[in-house]
Design a binder for these strands. Sequence first.
DNA 1: TTGTTATTTAATAATAATTATCAAAAAGGA
DNA 2: TCCTTTTTGATAATTATTATTAAATAACAA
Lengths: 131, 131
Amino acid sequence: MRITNQREIILEELKRLKTHPTADELYEVVKKRLPRISIATVYRNLERLSEAGIIHKLEYGGRQKRFDGDVRPHSHVFCIRCGRISDVDTVDGLDVREMVLDSKGFQIKEGSLQFQGVCPVCQKEKQLNVN
Amino acid sequence: MRITNQREIILEELKRLKTHPTADELYEVVKKRLPRISIATVYRNLERLSEAGIIHKLEYGGRQKRFDGDVRPHSHVFCIRCGRISDVDTVDGLDVREMVLDSKGFQIKEGSLQFQGVCPVCQKEKQLNVN
DNA sequence: TTGTTATTTAATAATAATTATCAAAAAGGA
DNA sequence: TCCTTTTTGATAATTATTATTAAATAACAA
């Protein structure tokens, strides 16, 4: 895979953000450095980079996919209201693959803990609506 | 929520299937019993039923959402090739929420183990492609 | 039962996110 | 330099899902 300017900056900005952005959120950020970049380039490169294992594509709740520049094994929560994703700190030295008794014939590559909940922003919104 | 014939049969068939079907897969099955049902009815009811907590909407890999008639806490694997989902048997008495050290302000509702891998069907296809 | 009202349905249009297409531009060599 | 391959930007196409709406159905009071 060739290291183009677009590719490099997409990766750089994704790694810098800790927000697990969607493709269009990342597009908005990258556009500040490359004003002429196309959204298709962002999609295309996020796909290539995740195929190569350089980044992770996250496909939890919400309609849009999100991306993570941190490929070390770790857990996520996603907000059932807005789809926002955050890292979650869990107990150390956890290899969830050891907890499998029967994988039903699947060849397991990766495993993680996954949580669903309500993010701080949506918690506040809920309170406001009640008043 | 009213118990209409369509709603009842959608739920019945989903509970019967252990394949975590997509909306259109379930539509094909339900159509055998209700030949005049609309795909929109299937989508609408799957949404209503999952809002009510009667079924679960699964949003792992792949572009399509999948549905599960079994709402008891359990783990899933999904196939990174085809998106197929299967239940995974894991060690008993596991409450993954106890493993959280810092939820980053999220109010956690549910947690589960999630695995990614290659399903038996895709494993075979891979072997064939090599020959 | 009949009439009234609210809910649900089927059909289909609309939307939103993503993917495909393709000519032009850029990147690597030979 | 020239040639070949890859990538890009612009935009069309696709796909899954959601919204709309008139008609059908259900619930229930009179």
